[in-house]
């Protein structure tokens, strides 16, 4: 697997007045396969942008498909894709990652989508359909015109889809009704604006629905795009060192003769953990829990802001 691939825009479709789909292919390389719920990262002039893949992973030949809603901000990645990208253009993408996998042990899968949050579910539903698994979709969208796959959705998933086109109060009432009826073994997946996701998660908690059965799509930066330098005091070694913008804390510690265990160097194994005594930390790992992040950091990917102090074992 490469760090990134150059892919060609094979097809662009206008799905709704504000949503376009993009199909990327590679003519000379085999693109890595992916699981339902995955996203790719596009390298755009304004930075890295992540978009869920919408194709059925079982039908993938050598293409990635995404659907993007134009947000209106002039500087945004979506405006760029909508206005400056044409069929035949070449774009750089990082290989797919999956922070939102299907839990295949689930007896039933319930998807809650709002707006463009439908995208990961489009891939999941076709995958589950291929496998003959049981699922349903609850889709809050402002109207038929705003729904990116309206006709296909009704043809393929007529018995699975419930639309929420009504006013806010009725919507809330109906969502709560459905959430109250969930049966044991059902996994819940949510993707949409933050307030929508918060509403569903909060209500599930009120109901006492088991936390590990609730899955939220959350995009997070894999690494800082513009790391800056910072100072670190290692309290138990009585040393203060500088970490330059082009090096990690782990490397700077090593250069200063302080060796700590390390392995993955991508913030997933936890080997290079140190205790944080003081200062603000920019966490870039996917290993530590929120609780652990209050006084720990992984030195291979996370950085300090200004001046921090740590303790090593």
């Amino acid at each position: 697997m490469e760090d990134f691939y150059e892919v060609k825009v094979q097809e662009i479709k206008q799905l709704t007045p504000t949503i376009k789909s993009f199909t990327f292919i590679s003519e000379n390389t085999e693109l890595p396969s992916f699981g339902a719920g995955s996203h790719i990262t596009l390298h755009l002039p304004m930075g890295m942008r992540q978009y869920s893949l919408i194709n059925n992973p079982l039908d993938m030949i050598n293409e990635y498909e995404i659907a993007v809603k134009k947000t209106g901000h002039l500087e945004s990645g979506s405006t760029y894709l909508h206005e400056d990208i044409y069929e035949g253009d070449v774009v750089k993408v990082s290989p797919p990652d999956n922070y939102f996998p299907l839990q295949m042990e689930g007896k039933h899968h319930v998807f809650f989508a709002a707006g463009i949050g439908i995208t990961p579910f489009w891939s999941m539903m076709s995958y589950l359909r291929s496998l003959g698994e049981s699922f349903e979709l609850h889709y809050a969208v402002s109207g038929q015109d705003a729904c990116p796959f309206y006709n296909e959705m009704n043809e393929r998933y007529a018995n699975q889809v419930t639309y929420y086109l009504m006013d806010r109060d009725s919507k809330t009432k109906k969502l709560k009704e459905r959430l109250r009826e969930l049966k044991v073994g059902t996994h819940v997946y949510i993707c949409g604006p933050q307030s929508y996701m918060d509403f569903i998660v909060t209500y599930c908690r009120e109901l006492g629905y088991p936390k590990k059965y609730i899955h939220e799509e959350r995009f997070k930066a894999r690494k800082l795009e513009h790391p800056t330098r910072f100072k670190v005091t290692i309290v138990n070694e009585k040393k203060t060192i500088q970490v330059n913008s082009n090096q990690s804390l782990l490397e700077a510690l090593h250069d200063a003769g302080i060796t700590i265990p390390s392995a993955c160097r991508q913030g997933i194994c936890g080997s290079c953990e140190v205790k944080v005594c003081n200062g603000e930390v920019l966490h870039n790992d996917t290993f530590l829990t929120a609780n652990e992040k209050t006084d720990k950091m992984l030195t291979c990917v996370s950085r300090g802001k200004g001046h921090i102090s740590i303790a090593v074992e």
Binding site: M1, S33, G35, S38, D97, C264, I268, C269, G270, T286
Partner: peptide, 16 residues
């Protein structure tokens, strides 16, 4: 527990 957490973070198509 940490080893298990590490394995659960392995990215798709990656091998360790």
């Amino acid at each position: 527990g940490k080893v298990e957490r590490f394995i659960s973070r392995i990215r798709q198509n990656e091998a360790w």
